[in-house]
Design a protein around this nucleic acid. Structure first.
Lengths: 121, 121
DNA sequence: CAGCATCCTGCGTGATACTG
DNA sequence: CAGTATCACGCAGGATGCTG
């Protein structure tokens, strides 16, 4: 099946793998203003969804773990009851924020508004 | 199942939908230097892969169609035998190139090299 | 040459329920 | 509060063969 090591093939492939998942980019974006707790991230992800899109803990958990293993975010467990866990961007994660900003800016300009004038120059 | 219109929820969701697929970003990148034919794109995608990763026409075809419907690229069919089809970036697609460039640059810096110093500041 | 038709498989994502 | 366990499903993506 030809695995095709993503990191070796080209940067965009590794990038896509890293941000694959519906929430990873939004999580990074949410974390740009400072550390957030698990529940806060979850609530933040619900905001912005059209309606009643419930993000399940299983999914959020996986995304956070993947981001942690990617080295974009860092998990801080306060280790006591009641449980309290904070997630924050690492240096790598912070360096990634401008990229997300560029994505958002382009998206707002070309995806939010009416898509007219995409004539082929 | 709560559809959650992607374009309405937030720009990054729409962005992710638009570039979902392993080759879309690479196709856009390949097209930045000018129009390319179907076979050229296909060959170009093979270059950069570690080994024998054959991209099937079905997949490439779908990616190209999706990109066309997204308004990023434009399909020009010369309409005669032997078949000749060229793909080129639209204005929208060209405006997207810098974003891909930012992605590539970040990826080369943080994914290609050794990933040291991602300490949580 | 530039595709389309058909079949198959793994994985990402969601629903639901339970726990330290 | 911050998760894990289990089940189920749609769909991206590959294999293979055929066509105008």
């Amino acid at each position: 099946m030809a695995k095709t090591n993503p990191a070796r093939s080209c940067p965009v492939a590794a990038f896509q793998k890293m941000i694959s998942g519906k929430y990873k980019l939004r999580i990074v974006w949410d974390l740009k203003d400072g550390p957030r707790r698990y529940g806060e991230i979850r609530s933040g992800l619900l905001r912005g969804s059209t309606g009643s899109a419930e993000i399940t803990p299983r999914v959020l958990s996986r995304e956070l773990k993947a981001l942690t293993e990617s080295g974009l975010i860092d998990r801080k467990d306060f280790g006591e009851v009641p449980p309290k866990v904070e997630y924050r961007l690492t240096r790598k994660g912070k360096s990634f924020v401008p990229v997300v900003a560029a994505i958002r800016e382009w998206g707002e300009r070309h995806l939010g508004e009416a898509m007219l004038t995409e004539a082929a120059e």
